[in-house]
């Protein structure tokens, strides 16, 4: 199996889906000739031509709005927002229309489309190139939100997203784009949307994260397990919407302790929702308050300070210890 970066893995998934289904259209700013500013769509223009790989004018609302029209008319658009920081310009189309056509028409009209959005910090980039805002999207009924954490699941999930009957916001943690490689099978692999996975089983505590925070979380778990006897179950959410409440509930009901790790600001973030889910499903089994390690409720600082604002493995480890020792 070839060892791929996440960029290459998503590229592979898109390529194979375009090969398989000629309704799949890729569009966005610089996705063609340039292959996307992160090179995720590299090579697709040469292979599929200008009618299927469209370098659009610079307008995010138009990119999504036109994608909606394409989807309503039977195509399978995969739109790219160049960075999360510019994706808010598509919000009126996403909230107002993509999320609603199914309900609005009682299922007669649907929007099977994907919006790929590089998101999150840690790449030393300019303002608007480093925030994590998954809550904005996860809060919209009718929109699925997927966040891969590694090359292999990124490939399997982009395939699922392209085939999904509904609008999917596919958040690509850009810190993980080239940070490491993983074996990705050439043959088709699909993972279901809306399902979390237990990355490693355990009995004493459940650690939950997603996207780029999976790596520091895993590091913290491993460090801690070297230090002391503790069996930690690690869950990778992979989808924020719909949330896999069963896997989460069952795990915490079993371990009785939980720590959630999130990059984005604290208030109203996914961790808050997870705590509510745990409240509903495992409150009486809890042996410690659920802890959340999060970003802070500040305007995302420029990159000179951002490394101080993203949770370190040490911060995560302390939260794990405090929860185990509660």
């Amino acid at each position: 199996m070839p060892k791929l970066t996440m960029v290459q893995a998503i590229n592979l998934g898109l390529d194979q889906e375009m090969q398989r289904d000629d309704r799949v259209i890729v569009l966005g700013e610089d996705v063609g000739r340039d292959g996307g500013v992160f090179r995720v769509t590299e090579g697709l223009l040469a292979k599929y031509g200008e009618t299927r790989v469209i370098d659009t004018p610079l307008a995010e609302s138009a990119i999504l709005g036109a994608s909606i029209g394409m989807a309503l008319a039977g195509l399978r658009p995969v739109a790219e927002m160049q960075f999360c920081g510019f994706s808010y310009l598509m919000l009126p189309q996403l909230e107002g229309h993509a999320s609603r056509f199914r309900a609005r028409s009682q299922g007669q009209l649907t929007c099977p489309l994907v919006v790929r959005v590089p998101y999150g910090g840690g790449v030393r980039a300019l303002e608007h190139h480093s925030e994590a805002r998954e809550t904005l999207y996860a809060h919209l009924p009718g929109v699925k939100v997927v966040v891969p954490s590694a090359p292999r699941n990124a490939r399997a999930l982009i395939v699922a997203a392209v085939r999904d009957p509904d609008p999917v916001v596919f958040l690509e943690p850009k810190r993980s784009y080239r940070a490491f490689r993983e074996e990705v099978p050439e043959e088709e692999e699909v993972m279901p949307i809306g399902c979390a996975i237990v990355v490693r089983p355990g009995t004493d505590l459940t650690a939950i994260s997603w996207g780029a925070m999976m790596r520091p979380t895993l590091q913290a778990v491993e460090e801690l397990q070297k230090q002391r006897k503790a069996s930690i179950e690690l869950i990778d959410l992979l989808s924020l919407a719909p949330l896999d409440v069963e896997t989460i509930g069952a795990s915490v009901a079993k371990t009785g302790r939980c720590v959630v790790v999130q990059e984005s600001p604290r208030s109203f973030g996914p961790a808050a929702e997870l705590i509510a889910v745990i409240n509903d499903r495992a409150l009486l089994q809890l042996e410690a308050p659920v802890k959340r390690v999060t970003g802070y409720d500040v305007v995302t600082p420029y990159f000179g300070r951002e490394h101080q604002y993203i949770a370190s493995p040490a911060r995560i480890r302390r939260a794990l210890e405090e929860t185990l020792d509660f």
Binding site: G121, G122, R175, S176, I310
Partner: peptide
């Protein structure tokens, strides 16, 4: 004081 983040 525990250390900085931003790890890949």
């Amino acid at each position: 004081r525990l250390g900085e983040g931003g790890h890949a």
